[in-house]
Computed example of a mutant assay.
Amino acid sequence: MARIGGRTAIALVAGIVLAAVVPAAAQPLTSRVEGTVQDETGSVVPGAFVLMTQVDTGIVWETTTDERGLYLFPRMPPGTFRVAAGAAGFATTVVEDVRVALNAPTSIDIVVEVGAVAETVVVAAAGPQSLLNTANAELNTNLSREQVRDLPLNGSDVTQLALTQAGVTGPAGARTASINGTRGTFNNFTLDGVNNQDTFIRTDALFGEIPVKESFIEEISITTGNADVDDGLGASQTQFVTRSGGNRFDTEAFFYHRNEAFNATNFFNKAAGIEKERVRVHEFGFNVGGPIARDRAFFFLNYEEERQPGSSSVVRRVLTDPARRGDFSYVRQDNG
């Protein structure tokens, strides 16, 4: 919501995230994780346990390998995980820092060594985790929280980051961007799996009912081609996921300021001796997140306020005194 003339634009986003596995009522915000468990000779290990633990929340998902040594987690939330696998007669192998991105299938092949289950072998995710999507033909790019926070923005609207992706063009800005040459109506713009497009205007690809600000966005997924059927309507998909709390308390405060002192004077204002337009933007707020019950329930609260005091130059035609009396003889007759 934006209001001009010194009035206030306020965006308030509050979320309480409860850790539970429930059926998704909207667009799924999950990814597929799969792989194999093998021994050092390359033979598969059937019946091995595989545990995935989300680092921030401590929530654990568990499955076992089938007779071919394959395991599958069909719907995992995005985040950073620790993956552990083991079996009778084998030591437990732990893969650290496994990154699961939204709409990006992940493959992790784990090798276990002969030994007692109580023994643990820790490896980095760089080796076992494959970053190549071999599950489907989607053309998908993800932007993590670190990228959302650190990449430069003009203001705090993160829809601008869509313009960094191949196939996304927007000469007039992200709002009216075109993805692979399609109309704005062909894009599906969602926030936490729920439609965020202005269905009244509808012609703009990235114009949402809720402003998408840097302070509360965790991840962005942009699918420019071959979107899967469960993504919903749209030839292209731009999905924004909000931040959530974890087992650790985190808080931040922020302030963004823009001032006309750093702007050039408009050519016409300068020619007419009029002072430059006043353009000032004040964006400030805070957020806090943490546990309600450790490993079970979490909260995240974000407050952001935007103030835009400013002025605009207006060009008007003012009649001369003779013209006000009905004498228009000063007007050239050749229309030149």
Rank of each mutant, 00 (worst) to 15 (best):
T265Q: 01
N226T: 13
T251A: 15
R248M: 04
T242Q: 14
A235N: 09
N226A: 14
A264W: 02
A227T: 12
G234L: 06
F254M: 06
T238S: 14
N269R: 05
F249Y: 14
N226Y: 13
E252F: 12
F255I: 13
N259D: 07
T251C: 03
N269C: 02
D231V: 03
E252M: 08
F240K: 08
E252D: 08
S244F: 12
S236A: 15
Q237I: 11
K270W: 03
E260Q: 04
K270F: 07
N266S: 14
S244A: 15
N226D: 12
Q237A: 10
E252P: 02
V229L: 05
A272V: 03
F255M: 12
H257T: 08
F240V: 04
Q239T: 10
S244R: 12
T238G: 02
N263S: 01
F240M: 08
N269T: 05
R258E: 00
A261R: 00
K270Y: 04
N269Y: 01
A271V: 11
N259K: 01
D228C: 02
V241T: 14
D250F: 11
D230K: 09
K270Q: 12
S236H: 04
Y256L: 13
N247Q: 14
Q237M: 08
N266I: 05
V229C: 10
D230R: 15
F268I: 12
A261T: 00
V241P: 00
K270P: 01
A227Q: 12
N266Q: 10
F268E: 09
S236W: 04
Y256V: 10
T251H: 13
G246I: 10
D231R: 12
G225V: 04
L233W: 15
T242W: 06
R243S: 13
K270T: 06
R243V: 07
F262Q: 00
N247E: 13
G234Y: 07
F262R: 00
D231P: 01
A264E: 11
T265G: 01
H257Q: 08
T242H: 05
E252N: 11
G234W: 06
S236R: 09
A261C: 01
F249A: 06
D228V: 13
L233H: 07
T242C: 06
R248I: 13
G246S: 03
F249R: 07
G246P: 05
V241N: 06
N263Q: 03
N266G: 12
T238L: 14
G234T: 06
G246H: 09
N247A: 05
G245V: 09
T265H: 00
F268D: 10
F262P: 00
N266M: 03
Q239M: 03
D228P: 04
N263F: 00
N263M: 00
S236L: 02
G246C: 01
G232F: 06
D228N: 13
T238K: 00
N226V: 13
A272T: 10
A271L: 06
G225D: 13
Q239Y: 02
A235R: 07
T238P: 02
N269F: 02
S244V: 09
G232W: 02
A261N: 03
D250W: 08
L233R: 15
T242N: 09
N269S: 10
N226R: 14
N226L: 14
D230W: 08
A235I: 11
D250E: 14
T265N: 03
F255V: 15
A264K: 09
V229K: 08
N259P: 01
